[in-house]
Simulated assay, not measured.
Amino acid sequence: MLQVLACGVVVFPGLFFAFRRILPSIFKQWTDADVVLVSERLVSSIHAVMATTVGCIVVASCRGNVVNDRHWLAPYFVIWYGVPYMAYDLYAMYLSHYYRFQVKGHEDYKRHSLRTVNSFVRKEFLLVLHHIALLTVLLPVTLFFRKDQGDFFVGCLFLTELSTPFVSLGKILIQLSLQDCRLHKANGGMVLLTFFACRIALFPYMYWMYGRHHGIPLYGVPFHLSLAANLGNCCILAPQVYWFVLLCRKGFRLYQRSRCRGDAPSPTRSATAAVTDNTKGE
């Protein structure tokens, strides 16, 4: 019973509901859209801290033999927390989208309908596709197709969540009108660093570790892996590269625009604003 109560099916919606109750009593001027957005970001950060912690434990435990070493947290976290979180987050993202447009006075958003759901899917297609792919690919691969191998690499994938708390913090600071503080500028640097290191550079690192285990050079690893493994990694990596390019381009534009107005902020500050518009982190 305690295990059921502690699993992600209960924990993440429960936290989301609690934040939606608590935040309006603290920030009375906030709209429903503000409350839902910050609640979603807080829950995302909590999940990210959990996933990163589990990833560090699994990676540290399986470094000796990256293919055959096992750790019980690798499949357990995916089943009990990863999959429930992805399903919950789709719903939370839809609510955030719904209330954001409702506050703006859109006629279609007076009530929930298939039209509002369709609008959400079209506007957030890449994020929705990313979540659905993890639900339909990550779970069966973790449970059935790995042949009890590769816990190290599952742990590495958990580490991709490291950037999420910084992305969420940037959005929350903007929500609190603290975008001019030093914390926001420093957070922008952490967004760039963690996003690149844990969502892009992590994939060459996993290939290098695999090659070291088998005694083959990095450039030969793709030819040693199956086509399905390479395609799966590309499908996960591609949107990360796309989001990172968007954040860099938009951050640069914001920085240039501010310089033209005679108010040149730190590039990292502009990057934080950009990333909170373009991605959630994972």
Rank of each mutant, 00 (worst) to 15 (best):
Q149I: 12
C156A: 12
Q149S: 11
Y207K: 11
G189R: 02
G232F: 13
V10M: 05
V103A: 06
V154N: 06
A238T: 13
V191N: 12
Y88H: 15
R249F: 10
R115K: 12
G105D: 01
R259N: 09
F223C: 06
T268Y: 13
G64R: 00
L129N: 03
V78C: 08
K123F: 14
D108V: 11
F223E: 05
V49W: 06
F12Y: 15
F77K: 01
V121P: 04
Q175R: 15
R259T: 07
W80D: 13
W72A: 10
Q240T: 08
V35Q: 04
F101W: 15
V66K: 07
R259W: 04
F19P: 09
D89H: 10
V11C: 01
I132R: 03
T31M: 04
A238M: 09
L183W: 02
C156K: 09
Y242E: 07
L193P: 03
I200Q: 03
R212H: 08
Y98N: 06
E161W: 00
G281Q: 02
F19C: 12
H214G: 03
F153P: 09
D89R: 05
L143K: 05
R269M: 13
Y76C: 06
K280R: 14
L193F: 12
Y205E: 07
K280I: 15
V275F: 15
S258A: 15
L218W: 12
L126E: 11
Y210V: 02
S266M: 02
T160I: 07
L225V: 00
I22W: 15
F223S: 08
V117R: 00
Y99I: 00
L139D: 02
A271C: 11
G215N: 05
L193C: 10
L37W: 10
W243Q: 05
T142G: 01
C234M: 11
I26A: 09
